[in-house]
């Protein structure tokens, strides 16, 4: 029997996990996005050696699951390298790495989508390569990548639930514990899903709105 009322009293307990979920998500997103821009630039600039390194980084984190990175960094790193990281750093770091790979590709696409003529015009005006990037290309890139970045943030928020495997008391972990205490896993997980839905739905709407806006702003004349 599905009886939500049997666990609804414990709902506040689940909500206590929201701050940690958000903190993990935002930390991973901020670090990952900041790292993504230099990675994307390295890839575009075709610096011998560095570009291949950037590509290897991107491909590794795009093709391997973050769950593996978390478990590996938490359990293997102390044994192999003697590096003991706290759980927050492990999860936020692992998610930041895969976010950096994804965002680097988004940045790269956004930078390459800015027409060549924008670089040409700003070059003839005397702007240095960095000034061209900063004042002309990146502002246009940012508009183009707002929507995909928003989608990355949504999937990151859901992936932060992987922290549960190393017993970080975020939403999912609290759900597991509550489920085993109440013997009502279906009801508890339904509540957990509801919380994730409430957190991500506004972002999904925002991404859709941004997509409409950018397609309007960049319509060809």
């Amino acid at each position: 029997m599905f009886r939500l009322d049997a666990v609804i009293g414990d709902f506040p307990l689940l909500l206590l996990g929201v701050p940690l979920t958000l903190a993990l998500t935002l930390a991973a997103f901020a670090v990952g996005t900041l790292a993504a821009l230099p990675i994307a630039m390295t890839r575009i600039a075709r610096v011998p050696g560095l570009s291949q390194g950037a590509l290897a980084w991107i491909e590794f984190f795009r093709t391997t699951p973050p769950l593996m990175h978390i478990v590996w960094a938490y359990y293997a790193l102390p044994v192999i390298a003697g590096i003991k990281l706290d759980a927050f750093t492990v999860v936020a770091g692992a998610l930041a790495c895969s976010t950096s790979a994804q965002m680097a590709e988004i940045f790269r696409g956004g930078i390459l989508a800015v027409p060549r003529g924008q670089w040409d015009a700003s070059q003839v005006l005397g702007l240095s390569p960095w000034q061209r990037l900063w004042w002309v290309v990146l502002p246009q890139t940012l508009r183009l990548i707002l929507a995909p970045s928003c989608n990355t943030l949504v999937s990151l928020l859901k992936q932060s639930s992987l922290a549960a495997v190393i017993a970080m008391p975020e939403i999912m972990n609290r759900g597991w514990i509550l489920a085993s205490e109440t013997f009502r896993p279906i009801e508890v997980l339904t509540l957990v899903a509801f919380i994730y839905f409430v957190l991500t739905w506004p972002l999904v709407l925002l991404a859709a709105a941004l997509e409409r806006q950018s397609s309007l702003a960049f319509r060809s004349d």
């Binding site: 924008q118 040409d120 700003s122």
Partner: peptide, 9 residues
């Protein structure tokens, strides 16, 4: 330029 290349932002 032929395509103007004004900065749209």
């Amino acid at each position: 330029f032929q395509s103007f290349n004004l900065f749209p932002h």
